[in-house]
Design a protein around this nucleic acid. Structure first.
Length: 222
DNA sequence: AGCCAGGCTACCG
DNA sequence: CGGTAGCATGGC
């Protein structure tokens, strides 16, 4: 297959055909992780309330370099402790927060990150944050910012994660060490500026990468 | 028993 | 600037 930007669209189509719609972002209220059919496939109307919006932000922070199964445990802990909302986290004792997020790993840092984010989130008073504002919050880098914007705020920001870099560098689009911004820009130039497309594409990349779960195996071009 | 997972910060040269 | 050690749990 010849490699050019049009292929980013055909790769999307073949991934979609192979795996179907993934129904991202994972929400506790649509907990379907075991059935392999996605969370709310084909339904792009999430988040439907501020509770879900905040939950996505928390999940995006907790999943940094961490398996989602571990993140889920932490999210359930937070929910059980009535800590899955910004005001509660802002007012919480940091020790409590650490215990709750422990299963997600890096729990000292992540407790601090959630604290900082909750203050920031409340300061927004419902407004959509600018990407640069998110960057300024401790613990939020490019991928987390884009995850929050794309899935919590439905903004057209393409997410670049380790899977995206690995998969598309193996396909010859760029080096695995290419800068975040350059990769992001490549996708955003090649694709229509469509939130649902960005959401689905990222979810499919993760699905495909997990399906071929070894960094040593070449990812098939499907 | 290691290796790995949907990164980020702090600090180094 | 670019490069990397450290952070930590749970699943396979």
């Amino acid at each position: 297959m010849k490699i050019d930007l049009d292929n980013l669209i055909s790769i999307y189509k073949s991934l979609l055909k192979q795996y179907g719609r993934q129904g991202w972002w994972p929400l506790l209220s649509c907990e379907n992780i075991k059935n392999n059919k996605g969370y709310h496939p084909g339904d792009y109307s999430y988040p439907r309330n501020n509770q879900q919006k905040f939950e996505i932000c928390v999940g995006a922070i907790l999943t940094q370099n961490t398996a989602w199964t571990n993140v889920e445990k932490a999210l359930f802990n937070l929910k059980d402790e009535k800590l899955l909302n910004a005001k509660a986290i802002k007012d919480s004792k940091i020790e409590e927060l650490r215990v709750a997020v422990k299963p997600a790993g890096y729990y000292n840092q992540k407790a601090d990150y959630l604290k900082a984010f909750s203050f920031f989130y409340l300061s927004l008073k419902g407004k959509t944050p600018a990407r640069a504002e998110l960057f300024a919050v401790k613990g939020i880098g490019p991928e987390t910012a884009d995850s929050i914007l794309l899935y919590a705020y439905s903004m057209p920001e393409f997410i670049v994660d380790a899977y995206t870099k690995r998969m598309f560098s193996q396909l010859g689009f760029f080096s695995e060490k290419e800068r975040y911004h350059n990769v992001k820009e490549m996708f955003e130039k090649a694709l229509p500026k469509d939130v649902n497309l960005y959401q689905e594409y990222h979810a499919l990349i993760v699905k495909h990468a997990k399906n071929n779960n070894s960094r040593k195996n070449k990812i098939a071009e499907t």
